[in-house]
Design a protein around this nucleic acid. Structure first.
Lengths: 344, 344
DNA sequence: ATGAAAGCGCTAACAG
DNA sequence: CTGTTAGCGCTTTCAT
């Protein structure tokens, strides 16, 4: 117990609390707090002295205590609800890329990011629990999954929340996302203009975003008097391959144009087609959705509907910060754009 | 405006603090705390009554206060240092996939995940700052980047840290990662056995993991008396394409086997080759590294070195939890495996 | 410009 | 089994 003081560091033993530092500096804890915060009330000399002391003693402010006292954390929650298809989003390149850009944008704004994956079936209270934890200043929900109703309900009483997903007429929660229906229209129109006379929609039409993509495709198909069939396919890697294999012969037999709900699906379909010797786009036209980096790398390169993921992430963060600031920021619908490459 | 009291919830107004709840239940705050924690000391009846009350009033425990008091948070920090190539890892599919699996594994263990991207050049104190914040119970560092020395230094005095990356002889920090050197050997050997007589290494040889992959390839090349050249290429999407285009003619002129440091690079190279009409694997053999989902989808499917990302994530989490528990868990080196597909 | 004091919301002795 | 009490480490009045 004698001298547990020095611990090897140059400047000496570590100061753990602001009170330790105060004792060393011969001032009160209050002054140290102010000095570290750069508060202008404190004498410039003492401020510098204290800051130097903090550096020398490897002092780190305890942010948990600080958060409790200030009632804010500088942390944004990012939650991924896994509704219908449990493993879907995590493995999906699109969501991961969005997450990367969110991390960028939040870091830039000085916020930390707390990531949580939830299975709403197992925890009906997933959103309230996260919000009520006191650990986050606001929340970004990635994907509406099958939780539209719950999100609406929470939005009615909790402002600092923004959702990546679709915007429905009259919805109360603030959403950022592409105009999925318009995107679906662009895709189907492209297929039809290229000569397709019978369309196939490849993807799970349950999630609301995909439902909108399908609805858009149907708009265009009906306008042109072209039939369109749905081939339900999940995104999880384990199910996707098998489901596509199961569908592909029927599709080739009936249709000559495929609209895949995501590029992940499109890339897998393209491979199945080429493996069977079906010429793309000669015999079968194909359009995807997302415009992932891989999509430019397939052979032939994929025609797809572009979503600007980086802009989406920035939009989410901007709107959220405005809402945290008390503003009543509205939804943001981003226009998708057809990227004409070689599969349609 | 009139009656803003009942807010649609069955049970009534919300209870914000444990003290609110205590008043409602006619007990002390201590008892409520125990009841909510499921502490067996508390009478079963009161326990149930309080828990029901909590539900009815939409009570959520304030975890910041709880964390401060208990001196632990149930949060694991995940930090991605962006050293040499700033945008590299974020956009890289491999790191994003690893992150997804980490989220899975941590969720399963009841931990939350706090994600932080740092640029060590801008903040020399990145690791100490994160650890010292008090917000996390342990930290997982994704990729050693060019921060090997700093990580070593911190590891000497901070136990609950695990790093995804390479293990060097005599290193003190606990690492989980593939045997990159062995992987490089497997790749080069495959190329040579297929008939390659002059190899090209495509990738940035600076990061320690990639350096190890290159070293392994050189081992095999030298053993076979085959020359191998390095073509430095970055992973960031904006630089990669241009750099590969710049390299490709030289490579085709000199070599007949390419070892790409990652599948992302390999896929891009494959496309360049096919666009130029270079037969793969006929005229040029190609092996990647990682075995990403896309790699099975290219035409022709990519021969590559498999890393089991899910197992890696589980390993990271297991070791970290053991270290948090006080155990002195050692590094984990995972054997890579060659996946023979059609490009080599 | 600084110190003293109160308290953020919770948990864990300690005492009954 | 339950209440009382004393903090966790920090920020912010309120005085001076």
């Amino acid at each position: 117990m004698a001298r547990s003081d020095t611990d090897g560091k140059p400047g000496v033993g570590r100061a753990r609390t602001i009170t330790d530092l105060a004792r060393l500096a011969g001032v009160s804890a209050g002054t140290v707090s102010r000095a570290l915060a750069g508060n202008s009330l404190v004498n410039a000399k003492t401020r510098d002295r204290i800051q130097e002391l903090a550096r020398d003693h490897g002092f780190q402010l305890n942010r948990v205590a600080s958060n409790l006292r200030r009632q804010k954390t500088g942390v944004i929650g990012v939650v991924i609800p896994l509704g219908h298809d449990r493993r879907q989003q995590v493995s999906d390149t699109f969501f991961m890329t969005l997450l990367g850009h969110l991390a960028d944008a939040l870091t830039e704004e000085g916020y930390d990011l707390m990531l949580r994956r939830v299975i709403p079936d197992h925890d009906g209270d997933w959103l309230d629990r996260f919000i009520g934890s006191g650990m986050i200043d606001g929340v970004i929900v990635i994907g509406q999954s099958d939780q539209f109703a719950r999100i609406e309900e929470v939005a009615a009483r909790y402002r600092p929340m923004v959702v990546w997903g679709n915007r429905e007429p009259g919805q109360v929660h603030c959403a950022v996302g592409s105009d999925n229906r318009l995107g679906g229209q662009l895709a189907a129109r492209r297929l039809i203009e290229g000569g397709a006379t019978h369309l196939a929609f490849l993807g799970d039409p349950e999630p609301i975003e995909f439902a909108a993509r399908y609805a858009g495709a149907r708009d265009a198909a009906e306008a042109a008097g072209v039939p369109i069939d749905v081939y339900p396919t999940h995104l999880s890697p384990d199910r996707m391959a098998g489901e596509i294999t199961a569908h592909i012969d029927t599709i080739v037999g009936r249709a000559n144009g495929i609209f895949a709900a995501t590029d992940t699906l499109a890339v897998a379909a393209l491979r199945e087609l080429r493996e069977r010797g079906v010429a793309v786009p000669g015999r079968m036209r194909l359009v995807g959705f997302d415009d992932l980096p891989i999509s430019a790398q397939t052979m032939p390169p994929l025609t797809t509907v572009h979503q600007d993921i980086a802009a989406g992430a920035r939009g989410l963060v901007d709107l959220l910060l405005r809402r945290i600031a008390g503003e009543d920021a509205a939804s943001l619908v981003m226009p998708p754009a057809l990227v004409a490459r070689d599969t349609a």
